[in-house]
Design a protein around this nucleic acid. Structure first.
Lengths: 341, 341
DNA sequence: GCCTGAATGACAACCGGTTGCCGACTTCTA
DNA sequence: TAGAAGTCGGCAACCGGTTGTCATTCAGGC
């Protein structure tokens, strides 16, 4: 059967096949498909019919090569398996797809070198990139942003368009919450020293604490993984505080486990506030009070900002900075301070 | 400073730039870089030096267009935010990167149509694809596999290379575990009807139950999300069983929450076994007994099988099927049956 | 009936590589 | 020293589109 078909070898159809079928030049086919106004409506309809008949799909490589636009956007995250990024990735994916772009997702393995080389490579194979929690130095990031359209997420560098999640201001909410429960000695369980948001959060927190006349101390740094939770828990207990803010939910969840092993009750003996409201924060034991942020939305916003850079027409004034609010979600891991004595 | 540089407009260097710099033809540069034996060692070294000086990086689009190889592999998952896929994705990513390939990750949104169109598109822009938990019909999948190198994960279709996770045999372990705890009435909380593994698991389970003389009943189907857990929990309670196997951990975790709301204790009043051992299964409340499988390894194996298809040399006999074992991990969600009366 | 201009479509160069083919130069052999 | 064999590098076509330029056609205006 199949062999009796006239034209179709089972190779994807090209514009040349369509051109031959319609008796026009390949360039006409190209125009009919990309700038329909440039071609007579009758010709165009013939071409469209032929394209449909041949199941024509444009070759994105060729398109990219000749037009310089790849239709792809790189999304760089430090660690795919960190649940924090799930919703972010989903947000970017949905928004990119809606705009007809392909998402190139890369795990940079928490490494600035991998990140740098990925950026360099993507410079040719993507139209722009979105970098979450970049490990690059300020100048390296600025440099990258100068070379190609780029939006950073959770990284604040002058001159680099960014979507920021305003956890610093969330920390004062969290602190107020703890104060309202009677806590006066609070620890901050810091994330990696390379994390800008950890730094900014600490700054905001210590400032807020000073204003309110409570004591905060900083512990760490700890890697943002559940495995670090044990060490963090021990450090917190040893420090003598009654409550703590963890850099993120992974650490907080790890702490929960360690504290249970040690027979320290949460929240009776220790209150814990996490950050990010990741998958799992609502069903761990006890459920985690945490600073929730609209991560998926952050992803979408980042995409919109990038697309605005890519085609400056299409309205939508090009914001170069967007701050997502954070709010405290109180669950079971925070409670009144234990009355001494 | 930068403006005083002679050649470099700030455009990525091409082989033509190198050729001009070395006084050779572009084709020679191409050969020096891709088939080094084909070119004199002295010429080659000059070219390599020039390439380094110019920070030359090959343009992958152009490479793909002319050679037909893209250096990319598509990885399709039904839902990126399902934690089950995290480790899978990480496994494929690591293995692909090690082999010098780029991973194109796509979320097919649980839709066979999206999946089909993605496959069609990837046919040109990737050298091969890995499809996890395909929603395609058997014939569609077979057809896709005929058109391009493809490896399926968790999908068993004759003629389609696959990595299978042997949960069916895991179910009898789980059943034995429950029987050893005294349970005789057990429910299977089924996943989507489109899921082949749900079907196979049910088949294996009902067979094992018959052999052992215990009663199993099937409930569902339920969507593989925590949100479905509530309905599943209610159905299980209503069915009068004392233990159940859930299609996956997401449903099981959702059930845990619902049961707690209803004041039904796990495991005293109801034992639950999940499947997949996803992120969160170890810290939910109570920690979930579950069928654990080496998902990351499954991803790696899938990549190896695909690469074996791509370059049939390089040894490593092309297996077309690989089965990953499953084992039961017992945690807190299963316990002795409650003595009636 | 001629001129102007818009509409239309063909031609060809180009994007950045790869690769088949061939000629020139070396080197080895007889 | 001539001829054969092998090395090495250049030419040019090609991958599948895009796009600037230009010739042709046709309609309308005078």
């Amino acid at each position: 059967m199949a062999t009796t078909q006239p034209a179709a070898v089972d190779r994807p159809a090209t514009i040349h096949d369509i051109a031959a079928l319609c008796g026009v030049a390949a360039s006409t086919v190209s125009r009919a498909l990309s700038t329909p106004d440039r071609v007579n409506i009758r010709t165009r309809q013939r071409i469209e019919a032929a394209a449909a008949r041949l199941h024509y799909t444009p070759n994105s490589q060729a398109k990219a090569l000749s037009s310089g636009r790849t239709g792809a956007v790189g999304v760089l995250v430090p660690d795919i398996t960190n649940p924090f990024y799930f919703d972010l990735i989903r947000g970017t994916q949905l928004q990119l797809k809606a705009a007809g772009y392909t998402q190139l997702l890369v795990d940079t393995e928490e490494s600035d070198e991998v990140e740098a080389s990925t950026v360099e490579q993507l410079r040719k194979s993507a139209d722009g990139i979105i970098v979450a929690a970049s490990r690059l130095s300020d100048e390296a990031l600025l440099n990258a942003a100068a070379k190609m359209p780029l939006v950073a997420i959770n990284r604040d560098v002058a001159g680099v368009p960014a979507v920021l999640i305003d956890t610093p201001s969330g920390t004062s909410q969290a602190l107020d919450h703890l104060i309202s429960l009677g806590h006066t000695r609070v620890a901050y369980v810091a994330g990696p020293t390379t994390s800008q948001s950890s730094e900014r959060r600490w700054t905001a927190l210590s400032l807020a604490a000073e204003e309110r006349g409570v004591e905060v101390r900083r512990l760490g740094p700890f890697a943002p993984k559940t495995q670090s939770g044990a060490a963090a828990a021990d450090a917190v207990v040893h420090s003598g505080v009654t409550a703590c803010l963890a850099f993120n939910d992974l650490i907080a969840i790890g702490m929960l486990q360690r504290l249970r092993e040690r027979g320290i009750r949460v929240p009776q003996d220790m209150s814990i506030v996490g950050c990010d409201d990741i998958f799992g924060a609502d069903f761990c034991n006890p459920p985690l009070s945490t600073m929730a942020s609209p991560i998926e939305q952050a992803g979408r916003v980042a995409v919109s900002m990038l697309l605005a850079q890519l085609n400056p027409f299409a309205g939508g004034g090009t914001r170069s900075r967007s701050v997502m609010p954070t709010h405290l979600t109180v669950r079971g891991s925070t409670g009144p301070v234990r009355q001494p004595g």
